[in-house]
Amino acid sequence: MGPTHAMSGAAAGLAIGAFLPIGWGGAASATEVFVFAGVTAGAALLPDLDSPQSTLARSFGLVSKSVAHVTEKISKSIYRATMTRKDAPIRNGHRTATHTVWFALLAGAVTAALVTKFGKNSAIGVLFFMLGLAIRGLAPTWTKKQDWAYVTGLSLALAVAVWWALPASAGSAALGAAVTAGVLVHIFGDMITKRGVPLLGGVVSIGGKRWWNFRPPRPLRIRAGAGMDKVLALACTAVTLVLAYCVAAAPHLIGAPWAAVTVI
């Protein structure tokens, strides 16, 4: 479900931002880690743009709803154009094209290209969209009580504030990597459900199928929205809180590169 995806994205973003060496593109400050985690949490909802009923589709009112309908139709068309005789027919495009590793790489590449080409304005746009999704995913109860326009305005203000406070973290490489990481977290989360995901869909043929659903052995599969989904959400929340504390208040515990400066 949406909150589980967003929280797992936040946990992964904090872990990547905190432990990835600076030389490999890792964060150089606690603020950069939190920005990376926020974008990753938002991007962890991105694959469900192929479902008009998803948290993402409801996030920006009629605009996101319309885009979700279009994405669902495009995904269905891609599936039908690339399917083999062994692939099952589908009624809609959910969990097809946007739930592949190709989409994860494409989303990150497009994000990086936009920021590189158009600079500051596109970076603010990416931050606005991803941080807006993160807010809705991480605080679903609160956002449901608010008008979507209010939450959208908050998302825009937060995006502008992040850009001015930390322009270095809004670089094309960092944002692109965060988006790809978030999408992959979503895909691997869906992979452990009963249905699984077509990780290599449309390109790689397995057993005569181009849309082979990858999933673990039956005893390890979970049902979305059921008990194990909620347990997973709680576990990701715990990891997020612990990592957030370490990043903000005790970076020396995780060997963060800025720990020495913090201690001094």
Rank of each mutant, 00 (worst) to 15 (best):
W102S: 06
L105N: 04
L106C: 10
A112H: 03
A113D: 10
L114R: 10
L114N: 06
L114S: 05
T116C: 06
T116P: 01
K117M: 13
F118K: 06
F118M: 09
K120W: 11
K120N: 09
K120Y: 12
K120I: 14
N121E: 14
S122T: 15
A123I: 01
I124S: 05
G125D: 04
G125Q: 08
V126K: 00
L127H: 02
L127K: 07
F129M: 07
L131D: 01
G132I: 04
L133Y: 04
A134H: 03
R136I: 02
L138W: 00
L138D: 00
P140F: 08
P140K: 10
T141V: 15
W142H: 10
T143K: 03
Q146A: 15
Q146S: 11
Q146C: 15
W148R: 15
A149H: 14
A149C: 12
A149G: 04
Y150Q: 14
Y150N: 11
V151Y: 04
G153E: 14
G153W: 10
S155A: 15
S155P: 05
L156C: 09
L156Q: 07
A157H: 12
L158W: 13
A165V: 12
A165R: 13
S169C: 05
S169Y: 01
G171W: 00
S172K: 01
A173R: 13
G176W: 03
A177L: 14
A177Q: 08
T180Q: 12
T180H: 01
A181D: 02
V183E: 06
L184N: 05
V185G: 03
H186D: 08
I187E: 04
F188H: 08
G189C: 12
D190E: 10
D190Q: 07
I192G: 02
I192F: 09
I192S: 03
V197Q: 00
V197S: 02
L199D: 00
G201V: 02
G202F: 01
G202D: 05
V203K: 07
S205H: 03
I206D: 03
W211K: 04
W212D: 00
F214Q: 09
R215Q: 12
R215N: 12
P216L: 06
R218L: 14
P219N: 09
I222F: 11
R223C: 05
R223N: 12
G225L: 08
G225H: 07
A226Y: 11
M228W: 10
D229Y: 01
K230L: 08
V231K: 10
V231H: 03
L232A: 11
L232N: 09
A233T: 11
A235N: 06
C236T: 13
C236M: 13
T237Y: 08
A238W: 08
V239D: 02
V239K: 04
L243Y: 05
A244N: 10
Y245R: 14
V247W: 01
A248V: 14
A248S: 15
A249Y: 14
